[in-house]
Write a protein that binds this DNA or RNA. Structure first.
Lengths: 232, 232
DNA sequence: TAGATTGTTAATCGATTAACAATC
DNA sequence: TAGATTGTTAATCGATTAACAATC
């Protein structure tokens, strides 16, 4: 158990730590006690030194010749990433993406507890999705304030996202996980994390275009007509 | 219209180009003809030189003193990112995340055309989600082959993802957009893009934990009891 | 012409990788 | 002891930022 100050670490390190965590969780049931950076790196295709640096950044120490105690490592990563004490969160936008996130109960293992959803549509508020109540949007600010909810998730369409962000900020929310495809304008102290699928797609699409330019088609089978009624 | 060779560009550049594109699309209706890197940078909070470098990497040129022609810029970015000719894609896993993606019709503007979904569950296959047919999983490989579909989207739970990836590869799919929280083991020439929400959450959660450590609570209003019946 | 902006080269910064000493 | 592995410092690499010349 370590409760040192949480340091600022490079973003890439922050993204890799959960990968280590996942690998260690797979390793745990095997009964092994310790693991080396070489082992972790081998599984994920990473340089062992990088793994060591990441763990060092997270404030986790091992023992020369032995490696790291798996239990210790899992605990240290969870502590460092803030997964030990759950962040309560409000989700706004009970559309399909919102519903999907409400169903990801595994988020709780990562310290995320979505305690309610909100939607401007009266047809949606009042319902329950994956066991979570959907409340009318106008209650967001007040409830966030009263309940000291510090994390907000935005899954509304782009057009409504800025307004929602402002309601969240007004309610004292400090960090926003934004799935709407736009940059939110919020005060500087608010942490915003954009999950911009369009940007993500852009990078995939460019890579595929480039790959196809280099190797047009690996094999060129006859183009067969496909039953029209089976696809739209 | 530019049809030069598509270059390999830094990943960060690839992620920023769609942001420029979005800003330019907003600018377009105003009737303005040209724009400078300073303008773009100001909107997104980026260094103008970085914007210029990114555009240069995408093979787009401007004119000193004038800037870039907006139309030209939009066209150039779309061309470079491969948004001009649609990539046909198969999506596997018609759960809530899959459904959400099937409903994102704006993906088509980014050159992504999801032409069908697949699911192992016979209760789901046969249905139609957001206008797309859901087919039985066992048809995936053959159909991908016959239709020359090159892009696959995985939205099944982690346990099934590796098997799906293998079916995709067998069907000749060249790029995979993976939403399942695990690293897929695929041949080297396959492009994999992991949309790992857990890793993303980790970084947000750590930042929030750190922020709370530094500024525990901006204001400390009384903790009010919340109607128990309104939340679960 | 003068000034704004691109294009391009150099400097800086940060992250990754390599080298090696400390240690169990 | 010898050897594997951590801890730590140095070297490399790549991306960002700064500087400045070219140009419309």
């Amino acid at each position: 158990m370590m409760t040192d100050k949480l340091k600022t670490v490079p973003e890439p390190t922050l993204k890799r730590l959960p990968l280590y965590h996942r690998f260690l969780k797979e390793l745990q049931p095997t009964g092994r006690e310790s693991v080396s950076c070489t082992d972790i790196g081998a599984d994920l295709g990473l340089d062992p030194t990088q793994v060591r640096k990441d763990l060092e950044a997270a404030g986790i120490t091992g023992r020369p010749r032995i490696g790291y105690t798996i239990l210790n490592l899992i605990d240290g990563i969870e502590e460092f990433l803030g997964w030990k004490k759950a962040n309560e969160a409000f989700l706004v936008g009970a559309g399909s993406m919102g519903s999907a996130l409400l169903g990801y109960h595994k988020f709780e293992d990562c310290g995320l507890r979505i305690i309610a959803a909100f939607d401007a549509d009266p047809l949606k508020s009042g319902k329950t999705i994956h066991g979570k109540h959907v409340l009318p949007l106008e209650k967001l600010t007040e409830l966030a304030q009263r309940m000291h909810v510090l994390l907000g998730i935005i899954t509304v369409p782009a057009a409504g996202a800025q307004a929602v962000a402002e309601m969240m900020v007004a309610g004292g929310i400090r960090a926003i996980w934004n799935f709407a495809p736009l940059r939110l304008r919020v005060p500087e102290h608010i942490i915003v994390h954009n999950e911009d699928l369009y940007c993500s797609l852009a990078s995939l699409s460019q890579k595929l275009a480039r790959e196809l330019q280099e190797n047009p088609l690996r094999s060129v089978p006859a183009v067969t007509a496909v039953p029209a009624d089976i696809l739209n």
